[in-house]
Simulated scan of single mutants.
Amino acid sequence: MAKLDELKKHLKKGEVYRRTDLAQWSKSVDRHLDALLRDGTLQKLSQGVYYYPKETAFGKTPPEEEVLVRSFLKDDRFLLTSPNLYNSLGVGTTQLYNLRRVYNHKRHGEFMLGNRKFDFQVKHHFPNKLTPEFILVDLVNNLDRLAEDKQEVLKNVLNKAETMDARKLAHSVTLYGTAKTKKLLAPVVSTTNILHRRKKNAVKYAS
């Protein structure tokens, strides 16, 4: 028990641990893991991944998604997003998806972590944080996966793109758009179109 109590001193509520994390504090990690699971100190989220839940007035809280994904990947370089964010653009998407997408450099595939499904996709390039421009580009990248009328959504996307910051949108298309997305959005991010929009805005503000 003394060794188990010593291990517990290293654990912090709200944190997610891998078996390898615990092994640095225990020479009998599997036996101690069994004990920690039995007494409720840890909860198993997936193979080799465990959570030390926080206690609130409403019971034990689930782990924060970013903490969970960071521990699973053993990497800080990822972007957590969801197809549900497309609905914020106002381009005709209304579906709600029980799925979180994780762009990262290491893992690919769908994984259940706890009771949540995550779609891990290896990408060479993704931003540090979500922006409206990236969300729009990501929508077009995943247009074929949408449940809505794709042609209607694309028409609305092109109209929406005309109202966005031209420079930021062009930057997102260049860095994060697939070849197909670049082709579809070419009419609204072309140099000619951007210069035309700037000129039109300049006239509008001058009047």
Rank of each mutant, 00 (worst) to 15 (best):
A2Y: 02
K3R: 11
K3D: 09
L4M: 08
D5E: 15
E6I: 10
L11Q: 01
K13E: 09
Y17E: 08
R18I: 12
S28A: 10
V29K: 00
V29E: 00
L37A: 08
R38A: 13
L42D: 02
K44T: 10
L45Q: 10
S46Q: 06
Q47N: 06
V49Q: 02
Y50A: 05
Y51C: 10
K54Q: 14
E55T: 08
P62R: 05
E65D: 05
V67K: 11
S71A: 13
L73C: 09
L73K: 14
D76F: 15
R77S: 13
L79S: 11
T81W: 14
S82P: 11
V91R: 00
T93E: 03
T93Y: 09
Q95E: 15
Y97T: 14
N98W: 13
Y103T: 00
H108I: 11
L113C: 06
N115P: 13
Q121M: 09
V122W: 05
F126Q: 06
F126D: 01
P127C: 08
K129M: 12
P132Y: 01
I135M: 04
L136N: 02
V137F: 12
D138A: 13
V140H: 14
N141M: 12
N142T: 09
L143S: 04
D144I: 14
R145Y: 12
L146I: 11
A147P: 04
E148K: 01
E148Q: 03
Q151P: 00
V153N: 00
K155V: 00
N156F: 11
N156H: 12
K160C: 04
A161R: 03
R167L: 14
L175I: 05
K180V: 07
K182E: 07
L185K: 08
V188S: 03
V189H: 04
S190A: 08
T191F: 14
T191V: 12
N193M: 02
I194S: 05
L195V: 06
R198C: 03
R198P: 00
K204I: 13
